[in-house]
């Protein structure tokens, strides 16, 4: 890195959490163990998110759970996780990870969310992310009606009463007016909006066997196909609410990240990019962001947040 690039700051303040750079490991990717979180942080992530945890252990869907296609990826892992008690023993000494760690919690009813949030409250997480938007797991997210403004308000208010940690609400792009969900979350006391979860679900059929490929038949669509939709969602949400937005969807290069930040994202999530560019996608995206900022006369990433707006 040359001297000029060293003077460029990527650090961001997200709900009073200091991130050395705006890249965040998205939930569901590599967040199964403490050791993997550490490795992702060592590879340059500004923050990391654990794989979503429910009250009880879940095996998830049968394989294939993740497949790719020409424009991105489909997944239906089905929220496999060891349950909140085991998660508490897995995720310890989080201050040694080297980046803030975000807990992702799921539930089939409001009480479950509260119970899991309380169960992880002493673990040293920097924030709690609550996805109300999974498109492919019965009992959770969109398949149990958690994606409406009313359900969002109810779940987030309940968790808000029980924790002082920042709450990020992860929402679905599959709605005609995404800002109504974001506003309901903001009104309920959310600290930030993570936009967006995977879209769809989609289906890929293997024409030789004449059967859907995914074990659950359908799965959430991510990667390049999702990016323009995610950028539009972040752009709309940024205009509609006051709390910060974490932009997620198809980001695998510095240019993608810059685009998402221009739409209004205070930080950006990376998931499928771990596949397309490797586990060091975080440091690659950061180097590319710095390069772009330098070439375009900026020395602070925060100067371009929302710059695409009129």
């Amino acid at each position: 890195m040359n001297g000029k690039m060293a003077g460029i700051s990527l650090s961001v303040n997200l709900c009073n959490i200091r991130l050395s750079n705006p890249t965040v490991l998205a939930s569901g990717i590599l967040g199964t163990t403490r050791a993997l979180l550490k490795r992702v942080a060592d590879n340059g992530a500004g923050a990391v998110t654990i794989k979503s945890v429910s009250k009880e252990q879940r095996e998830g869907h049968k394989n294939p759970t993740v497949i790719t296609y020409e424009a991105g990826m489909l997944n239906a892992v089905g929220y496999s996780n060891p349950g909140v008690d085991a998660a508490r023993s897995e995720f310890y000494n989080l201050e040694d990870i080297g980046a803030p760690v975000i807990a992702s919690i799921i539930g089939t009813c409001t009480d479950d969310f509260v119970e899991v949030a309380e169960g992880l409250s002493e673990s040293g997480f920097s924030a709690i992310e609550i996805p109300l938007s999974c498109p492919h797991t019965p009992g959770f997210g969109l398949l149990s009606g958690q994606g409406t403004p009313e359900a969002t308000y109810e779940i987030i208010s309940a968790v808000r009463r029980k924790t002082n940690l920042p709450i990020f609400v992860k929402i679905s792009p599959n709605v005609p007016e995404i800002t109504t969900i974001a506003k309901a979350a903001e009104d309920a006391g959310a600290s930030a909006i993570t936009a967006v979860n995977s879209m769809g679900p989609g289906m890929i059929i293997n024409i030789e066997s004449k059967k859907p490929v995914l074990g659950f038949k359908v799965g959430g669509v991510t990667g390049d196909a999702l990016r323009p939709i995610a950028v539009r969602c972040v752009y709309d949400i940024y205009k509609a609410i006051k709390i910060p937005v974490i932009g997620v969807g198809g980001i695998s290069t510095g240019r993608h990240a810059i685009e998402m930040i221009m739409a209004g994202a205070a930080a950006i999530g990376i998931g499928t990019g771990v596949y397309t560019r490797g586990i060091d996608v975080f440091s690659k995206v950061c180097a590319e962001m710095k390069q772009w900022l330098m070439e375009n006369g900026y020395n602070n990433i925060n100067d371009i947040v929302g710059i695409a707006h009129d």
Partner: peptide
């Protein structure tokens, strides 16, 4: 699960 290094299910001390 995935086979290509993204889901984290086959972790062994941070190695996929």
């Amino acid at each position: 699960k995935c086979g290509f290094g993204i889901c984290g299910q086959c972790d062994c001390s941070g190695q996929r």
